[in-house]
Design a protein around this nucleic acid. Structure first.
Lengths: 155, 155
DNA sequence: TCCATATAGTTCGATATTGTACTATATGTA
DNA sequence: TACATATAGTACAATATCGAACTATATGGA
C-alpha cells in the first residue's frame, strides 16, 4: 500500500555521490603523485587478466569518454607504468600493456589498501554491505541501458 | 565460517563509481548548458529549506574543497541563478540565496526528472533499492570518519 | 573493387577540480 | 586591549574532464 517517495531515490544517488568522493580521496592518498584514481583503475583492470586491453574497451568499461582515456593513458605511459602497442587485429587501435614498474606499483598499492579494507570490514556490517552488491549491479545495468534509450522504448 | 572476500568490497566501490558517472551524465543531459551536476546540487540544497546557506557549510555537506565551491557559486552567480550577500553574523563569510530564476530552474529540472525517476522505479525492484539506503548511509558515515583518522585510533 | 559509413584514437579548446598561498575577519587568552 | 591562532573566501596554477572536429583504418554493400 505504501507509495515509495521519489525523494528516497534522490537520497540514494546523493549517498552514492558522496561515497564515491570519499573513497576516491582515500585511494588517492595511497597513490604516488601525480597519479589519481583514474590511473589506478587502468592498472587494476590490466592486472585482472586484461593485460593488452584496447583503450576504447576500457573507456566503455569505466564509462568515460575516449578522450579522457587517451589523457589517462598518456599520463601512465609518460611515467613508465604502461606501454602502448599497435593492435595487430585492428590498425585503428592500440593495445595497453603493464610494464614491470606498473605491475609492481599496482601490487604495492593493493598491499597498502589491504588494512584499509580490513578496517572497513570491521567498521561496518559486512553481510549488509555484501548484500547491496547485486542491487547496485541491477541499478548500474538499468542506468547503462537507459543511457541511450531517451524517452519511450520504441513500441 | 565463510570469510568475506575483500574483492567484494572493491566491486562495491567499482559499481558505486560507475553509478555515480551514469547518474551524473543522466542529470546533466537535463540541465541547460553550461550548468553541470555541481551547480544543480547547490540549487537543490538551497531549495530544501536551506536558502541563505553559507558557502563553507555547503562545501562540507558536499565533501568538496572550498575552492571548488567558490568556483561553482561564481558560475551560478554569473548566470543569475543565485546571489551572494555578506553574512551579517560573520564578516569573513557570505550567504547564498536563490533568485527567482534559480528557483524556477530548480523546479523545472525536478519536473523534467520526475518521469526518469518513475521509469527507474519500474525498471528496478524498488523495495530492494530502498533497502540499500541505510547501508549506504552507514558506509558514508564510516568513510567520513575514517577520512581524518589516518592509521591507528589513538588508543 | 569502390565507396559510404562507422569506428579508434588524437588534437584542441573550454571549463572543472583542487592544492597552495594569500587576505580579511573572528576568537581565545594573557 | 593586544596578539596568536583559527577560519572563510579568493587568486592562481597545475592538471583533469570532456565535447567537437579531425585523421586513419575498417566494414558492409552495390
Amino acid at each position: 500500500m505504501t507509495e515509495t517517495d521519489p525523494a528516497v531515490i534522490f537520497r540514494i544517488f546523493n549517498e552514492i555521490g558522496i561515497i564515491e568522493q570519499l573513497s576516491r580521496a582515500l585511494l588517492e592518498a595511497r597513490l604516488p603523485p601525480p597519479l589519481i584514481a583514474a590511473h589506478f583503475a587502468v592498472l587494476s583492470h590490466l592486472r585482472k587478466g586484461r593485460d593488452g586491453a584496447v583503450p576504447i574497451d576500457m573507456a566503455r568499461a569505466f564509462q568515460v569518454p575516449k578522450t579522457s582515456m587517451t589523457h589517462t593513458l598518456k599520463g601512465l605511459e609518460r611515467h613508465g607504468y604502461v606501454i602502448l602497442q599497435p593492435n595487430p587485429r585492428d590498425g585503428r587501435s592500440k593495445t595497453v600493456w603493464l610494464t614491470d614498474k606498473g605491475r609492481a606499483l599496482e601490487e604495492r598499492i593493493m598491499v597498502a589498501l589491504a588494512p584499509e579494507i580490513a578496517a572497513l570490514m570491521e567498521g561496518v556490517e559486512v553481510e549488509k554491505l555484501v548484500s547491496i552488491l547485486p542491487v547496485l549491479t541491477d541499478l548500474r545495468v538499468y542506468l547503462d541501458a537507459a543511457r541511450d534509450a531517451p524517452q519511450l522504448p520504441s513500441g
